[in-house]
Design a protein around this nucleic acid. Structure first.
Length: 305
DNA sequence: TTGCAGGGGTCAA
DNA sequence: TTGACCCCTGCA
């Protein structure tokens, strides 16, 4: 069948989506936006999204449209979940064109040509990025997995058990000691208080979309464990706001090294992003961050005095 | 082998 | 503006 420009074929246990452009699973799953997609030995990725465990692979050459294969996916799920989740309604070719205004962005976009911003569940993104504070990716992935194992629902795929991300109520009803099965350490108290504030309606995640960017950001920052960096990540990776520019130490060092040629404050960097990338600041950040991290640009040895 | 710094930030003083 | 923070890894 055909759906919004894509050709979809349903097989026994998978769906094949053809004519998918601007996608590379390595770029998309390893650009730092998500923590629940695991690379398998055969190069495919297995992940848990909205209570479903699926395996994804992509067949296609660089720059060309290719076929996205979702094992354990159905056409209904494609229409209700995957089309949106993989942001397949957006023209990334046009975004990349408009971002490639200078040599730095040209390099970054060329390098991460297959990045797509996933529209992830905002609640899961919130907790995941609270866990990311002063932490490393493998540990964040493990923590999210442990939380899901302890508080989520079991899902079987090919005889292997996976676990959905826990509900607000489940985490809010827990306590710091039990939450520490994820080894989140000092972050566990933030997770507990944040969960309770969300449960009690102190902060309403579903309302953020209708607010201005800055208001949504400030609203998120009322939650314990959420500062500017985490707030921007939550807004961007849930597809709530795209004109944010999450700035962590890597992005900061990259911006200083490549653009400013000197030390710069967070405010300066955000202003620069507003002026130069505008509505597309979030996409720009993602290409830059992936490019910098994979090429060790902004690594400490190279940093400015 | 043991020890120590430091990590995709946030909070509190 | 600055240090502490849980846990873990990498590197002397």
């Amino acid at each position: 069948m055909e759906y919004k420009g894509y050709e979809i074929e349903e097989t026994k246990n998978a769906i094949i989506i053809r004519k998918v452009k601007d996608f590379n699973p390595v770029h998309t799953f390893e650009c730092g936006q998500c923590f629940r997609w695991k690379r398998e030995k055969d190069g495919s990725y297995t992940g848990v999204v909205r209570g479903r465990a699926v395996n994804v692979e992509f067949h296609g050459d660089k720059e060309e449209a290719g076929a996205l294969v979702i094992k354990n996916g159905s056409i209904d799920d494609f229409i209700n979940i995957w089309y949106d989740y993989f942001d397949l309604g957006r023209d990334y070719g046009a975004i990349k064109q408009s971002l490639m205004k200078d040599n730095i962005m040209r390099e970054a976009v060329k390098f991460g040509y297959g990045i797509r911003l996933l529209k992830q569940d905002i609640w899961e993104t919130l907790i995941s990025f609270i866990l990311s504070a002063n932490n490393r990716i493998p540990m964040i992935m493990r923590a999210v997995e442990k939380l899901s194992e302890a508080y989520g629902e079991e899902i079987k795929l090919d005889g292997v058990s996976y676990y959905s991300f826990p509900s607000v109520d489940k985490l809010a009803a827990s306590n710091c000691e039990e939450l520490d099965v994820c080894k989140g350490g000092f972050r566990c108290k933030y997770i507990l208080s944040t969960s309770q504030m969300i449960r009690d309606g102190d902060v309403r995640l579903e309302r953020l979309e209708t607010m201005s960017r800055d208001k949504a950001r400030n609203e998120l920052m009322r939650l314990p464990g959420v500062g500017p960096k985490v707030a921007d990540c939550v807004l961007l990776y849930s597809g709530t706001k795209y004109d944010v520019f999450p700035t962590d130490v890597w992005v900061k060092r990259v911006m200083e090294e490549l653009y400013f040629k000197r030390e710069a404050s967070f405010k300066e960097i955000w202003n620069f992003a507003d002026e130069n990338f505008g509505d597309m600041a979030g996409f720009a950040q993602q290409y830059l961050f992936y490019y910098a991290r994979e090429n060790k640009i902004g690594a400490k040895e190279n940093s400015l005095g």
